[in-house]
């Protein structure tokens, strides 16, 4: 009897990580994401130049040993701006998705586990929010509050909450009647304990997958809005801003627009692969709920 016990993996979490790293696409995604996170965290040390330092004598330089990715129309080092841009992109993406995820979890748990009237009221609000056309809504908010990082985060949070909340709510509703939740109730556990220790750990898994696949969407959105001068304000380095600068100088120096596109593409691939890898690594264990 006990020989079987020893043969089993010690931890499920490490098992999932192990499976993720065995999946080639997932591992590649994880490595790419780790690289971008490192870029964002260590930007001051990694960037060879000050991303804001002008050097008009050397503007629109092609890639060289001094400037690996060349310089832009104001002579700023493109590589340094891309590295700092990773900080902007990830900062916006992680803070907005993280915030939206946290609020979505809270609302979803309350709607799913709480009284029926509260559930219905919340669903009504969430449905109204998600029925707004996203771009129009974003433009309206930016018009009122003015462009900037804060506005950008607010918009993304507002449009992302309904989806996350609904995902959590649906799973909470299923788990609410699961035997193990009923068992906790018979032992006298209150709603707080049941939600925090028994329902939450079983619903965050799928959400984490969705969140990680939403990160590139937000990075693209940030880049897109910044490109339109509605997002991060220049001169702050953002991939969108760099792309815009590259577009205006496309004829004189095409390297700039290519350099700005590469991190966008790679980060999108990275987060998407990671999300898919996570899903595959976690999926077999997600089969919970009433039978």
């Amino acid at each position: 009897m006990s020989s079987v016990a020893e043969a089993l993996p010690a931890s499920r979490r490490s098992g999932a990580l192990h499976r993720l790293m065995r999946d080639r696409m997932g591992a590649m995604g994880a490595v790419l994401v780790a690289a971008f996170v490192a870029m964002a965290l260590f930007a001051p040390w990694l960037a060879p130049y000050d991303p804001l330092k002008l050097d008009v004598m050397h503007k629109l330089m092609p890639p060289s040993l001094a400037h690996w990715a060349g310089t832009d129309q104001l002579g700023r080092d493109t590589l340094s701006r891309l590295i700092w841009g990773a900080r902007t992109a990830l900062g916006v993406a992680v803070s907005s998705i993280g915030l939206a995820g946290a609020i979505g979890i809270a609302l979803g748990l309350v709607a799913g586990y709480g009284p029926r009237w509260l559930d219905m009221a919340l669903v009504l609000v969430l449905d109204s929010l998600s029925s707004l056309p996203m771009i129009m809504f974003a433009l309206a908010v930016i018009t009122v509050l003015g462009p900037g990082k804060g506005t950008l985060i607010l918009v993304i949070v507002l449009v992302s909450i309904p989806g996350y909340a609904r995902l959590i709510r649906a799973q909470t509703l299923t788990l609410k009647n699961a035997d193990f939740v009923q068992a906790e109730r018979t032992m006298g556990a209150g709603p707080g304990r049941i939600l925090a220790r028994h329902i939450l750990p079983n619903v965050v898994g799928p959400l984490v997958i969705v969140l990680s696949m939403d990160v590139p969407v937000v990075i693209m959105l940030e880049a897109g809005l910044s490109y339109l001068n509605l997002g991060v304000k220049p001169p702050e380095p953002s991939w969108g801003n760099i792309l815009y600068d590259g577009y205006t100088s496309l004829r004189s120096q095409p390297a700039l627009v290519i350099a700005a596109g590469v991190p966008l593409v790679l980060s999108t691939i990275g987060f998407t692969f990671l999300g898919e890898g996570l899903r595959d690594a976690l999926d077999p264990r997600l089969k919970v709920g009433p039978r």
Binding site: A178, D179, F180, A183, E184, T186, M187, A189, P201
Partner: peptide, 30 residues
């Protein structure tokens, strides 16, 4: 405090992400 239930499906009545050791001492914590 004075009653306990044993469910028809024992696996389903245990919190799926909680190890057995923690699950069986859960009543003390509650």
């Amino acid at each position: 405090r004075g009653t306990a239930m044993m469910f028809q499906d024992p696996v389903a009545s245990l919190s799926p992400r909680m190890r057995v050791g923690e699950a069986i001492t859960e009543p003390f914590a509650i």
